[in-house]
Each structure stands twice: as C-alpha cells, then as structure tokens.
Nucleic acid binder design. Sequence first.
DNA 1: CAACTTCTGTAATAGGTGTTGCATAAAACC
DNA 2: GGTTTTATGCAACACCTATTACAGAAGTTG
Lengths: 277, 277
Amino acid sequence: MERRTVAARIHDLDQALTAAGRRAARGLLGNYPLLGLAPVAEFAAAAGVSAATIVRFVAQLGFRSYPDFQRALREELEERSKSPLQRGASAPETEGDAAFLAAFLMRSARTLNETAAHIPAGEFETVCRRLSEPKRQCYLAGGRFTDFLAGYLEAHLRLVRPGIRRLDGRPATSADQLIDVRPGDIAVLFDVRRYDPALLETARTLARRKAHIVLITDAWLSPISRHARYCLPCRTETGRTWDANTALLALAEAIIARVTELSWETAKGRIGALEGD
Amino acid sequence: MERRTVAARIHDLDQALTAAGRRAARGLLGNYPLLGLAPVAEFAAAAGVSAATIVRFVAQLGFRSYPDFQRALREELEERSKSPLQRGASAPETEGDAAFLAAFLMRSARTLNETAAHIPAGEFETVCRRLSEPKRQCYLAGGRFTDFLAGYLEAHLRLVRPGIRRLDGRPATSADQLIDVRPGDIAVLFDVRRYDPALLETARTLARRKAHIVLITDAWLSPISRHARYCLPCRTETGRTWDANTALLALAEAIIARVTELSWETAKGRIGALEGD
DNA sequence: CAACTTCTGTAATAGGTGTTGCATAAAACC
DNA sequence: GGTTTTATGCAACACCTATTACAGAAGTTG
C-alpha cells in the first residue's frame, strides 16, 4: 500500500471527480478523517449522497474496499499521533520548544480577541460603509513591514469595487499620485511602530486635501493618528524580537468580508467575471 | 448515554476487570483510541485475547454493542479536535452588524487554535531548524493571494540570515531563478485554494533538483503536497466569500520568531546593523 | 432535438461482522 | 484435593454492512 495520505489522494483526483464524488470529498475533508471511520451509510448521509457513491469514491481513491480505506485512515491517524510523541524521545532538550508553535498561536489568537475588545464596533462599521460607497476613490498605503497588508487589501477590494488605488511608499512618487485626491475620498493607511516618516508625510498631504484617513496601527498609535478620521488600533505585542502583524491582517480580512457583504450587488458580478466560474 | 470518556470508564472499572479484560483495556489505552475503531478481530489480536472477550469488555463499559462503542469513540475524537477552540466561545453569536467585527475576529482566533492542533510540533520544529542552517540557500514563493506572505517572510528572514531568495511567480522567469538550486536547499511555498498552477510547476522543478520543499497551505492541501517534504496545513474557513489567510500569517510569524531564536548568534549582529540602532 | 454517454440512486446480493451458546480451563473456596 | 464458581476461547448463528447490477436521470455531442 502506498504511503500517501488519503487527503493527498483526494487532491490528486480533484479534477477527475464527479459532482457527487466531490461532495463526498468535501464531506470527508470537512470532518477529516473521522467521517471516513463511520459506516458507509453514515458517511453517505453526512455528505448528502448515496452509499453507492461513497463506495465508488473510495474505489477511485485506489482502495480495494471500504474497510481497506478505513484501515488506511487509522494508520494515518496513528502516524500523526506518534509524531508529536517523538519530540520527547528524540530531543529531550527541546521540551520547551515542543509547545512553541501552540503557545505562539494561542498568544496570537489572544491578541485577536484583545483587538476586538479595543475597537469600537461602530467605528469599524462606519469605515466599512464608507469603503462601500463606490463613488469615493479609495487609496491604500503601508509602511515598511505593513505595505504587504495594503497590497492584500488592495487585491481583494479591487474585486469588490472600482476606484481602488495603491500608493507607492516613496514620497517623491506619492506626491504625483495624490494630485487627483478629492475631498471625501478615503485612504486606508497601515502604520506600526518604527513608524514610517514617509507615510506620515503622505498622510499630511491627504489630510490637506480633505481625504478621510482610516488608520490601522498598533496600540501605541502612529503619529498619523492626529490626521486620521478613523483609527483602528490592533494588538501586536509578542514579548519577542518582532511584533506580530497577525491582528492587522485579521482586521483587514474583516474589512474585506464586511465590505463584500455591503457591496454584494456590485461585487457579485465583478467577482464572477474575474474569478471565472 | 453518558458523556464520560471511554478512557474514564475504563479507569472506573479497573479493579472489576478480569485478567483478559485487563489485557483488552491495556491494549486500547496503549493505542487510544484507534484500536477501538478497528474491527473486533483486529482489536482482539492486538490485545492478545479472543474476539468474544472484546465484546464482553465493551459491554462491561456500558455500551449496548460494539458499533455503539465505536460511535462513542468517534464522537470523543471529534470533541477533542474541537476543544482547543471552545475556550473563547462565550460571546453571543449575534450575527447582527454590531458584533460583526468581534464575531469575525473570534472566529479567526479559533482558526489559529485549530491550526495549532493540526500541525505536528515536531514538523514545525524541524522546519525551523532547517531554516536556521545558514549554509542552505532558502527560496520563497507564493500564489496569487499568498505571495505577500512570501514577501513578508522574506523581509524578516533577510534580517536574520543570509541566502534568502524570493522567487518571482511567473514561470518563465522562475526557471532562470532556479538554475542555482542545489540538493538540500530549502524552499518555502505558500499555496491556498485556487491553487496556482505556475507555483506547482515551480515546485516540480524544485523537487527535481532535490530541494526540500516546505509547503504552507490550507486544510485541503495544495497539489504541491505531493512534492513537499514538510507540509504545514492551516485553517482558512470563514464560511464567507473569501477564505482567511490570518492563520498562514500567524504561522509565518511563528516561524520568524523561532528561526530568530535559533539563529540568534548570527541574527543579532545583522538586525543591529540593518535596523541601524 | 435526438442519440448517446455518463452519472447517480435504488434495491437485491454476498460477504463479513459482531454476537452468543457451549465446552473447557482456570481460579476460588470449602 | 475435590467441588463450585468464574472466566475464556471456539464455533455456529444472525444480523448488518459493503457491494454491485440495473434502471432512471442528467448532461453531452452531433
């Protein structure tokens, strides 16, 4: 028997799957791998297909029988549960390190919840509504380690609505890009500690032209906050060398999700056209 | 049916068990709970008793039948995989607009915890150690919506160690970039659903040149997983139009933090020199 | 629009599974 | 050490499960 995981096999088929087969795959991956350990009838009911389809599905995966398939899943599960066990045996000195990832991610998760607690719901909602008004031009920019966030937000907002402009970080070129800014236009700026002086300059110009600045920053507030109409502070502390930008991305994704909802009438056409299915 | 775990039930019986029954219990606890999901015959063979003993054993545990017992085990396993996220799930899920942000961020936090539960600690640690060996070249690349993650990781790793190369997404140029790849070099690839065909091609080339591929993907596993030596799946489900990449960023930051620790002797000088204070 | 191919659920079948009665072996108790 | 009680494995049984043939539905192609 091959060593590839069932999940990997499913992916190999991917295109080759029929409609019902795909539902079976989704069902299994959605509740992986437990659903596969249930009897066929239960698997079928949960996936919304007939028992026969499940059997054909596992046959397509390359298993000679359903029990065979279940055996593979159990072995896989066993492998998985053994790997974290090896850490104790093979590397006794790394006892503290074993939990590194879990501790780090748990801490990150906590910053998300703290962030939620520190941002007024009304402020968030207002920002999203502003961003959903297609008549306003929308400018995006970030600092050294946050520019990628502006890029990410840009990529998604472009799919949702027209009028998105990304601002280059360099002040010389940004001046050119700002000549068209009109009062009431909206600008989303990302800026975290070791705040970017160039971005502050950009913010000043935007404020002078009466653009509405949405500032996404850390808990210590970028100096841009003085010019910002809306300010969304995120938690970034990690107690390590680097601060974390996870909360900023999560906030950006929340904005994307909300704006997509609010602009759905406009967005659905655009997304369909660009995604192509 | 009671809600107590099977393991707890076994513990309760403990003294009341017969000799053969105890062997069954030991067998199950030694490979918990997977052995219980196997057919009776297999369970019996592994525990060194007869099938009949196994059936009596599960009856003693309070189950009406062996399938009943298996169902309980599956439900237990399902609970366990969900448990790390229930901690923060106390807020009223008012899907109204007021709580949108809080609900969204809480959900994101949950994906982080689920991600932590699904990535073997050993795998993460191994990847970080590989990344901390400065002799290996390190290549980075991402797909359409994840390229920014590669960029983010690149920006930080550059500060920590030499030999970081970012791969351009376009296959034409990437071929040129890959001619220097040597066996043992390491490549970190980000790929989430609507997997990038160009990136898959890049991965193939990397694999052909015996580079070690670290794949950071979603729960459905990019096709690149077939070529990856290490695979770190993240949760991305939001139940909305867009999947969330927050967990991928958090994982990237965890890698950055860990590699910085492991390479501290090298890193401290570089960071000081480049940050300039 | 028709002919064909492919897919999917239904229902009957075959095979395996869990179950249980019984004989035997082990242990406990006079 | 004999007798009773309990535990255990074997093997036949009954049930349920996976399997598959078939017919209808859905989608494709000319």
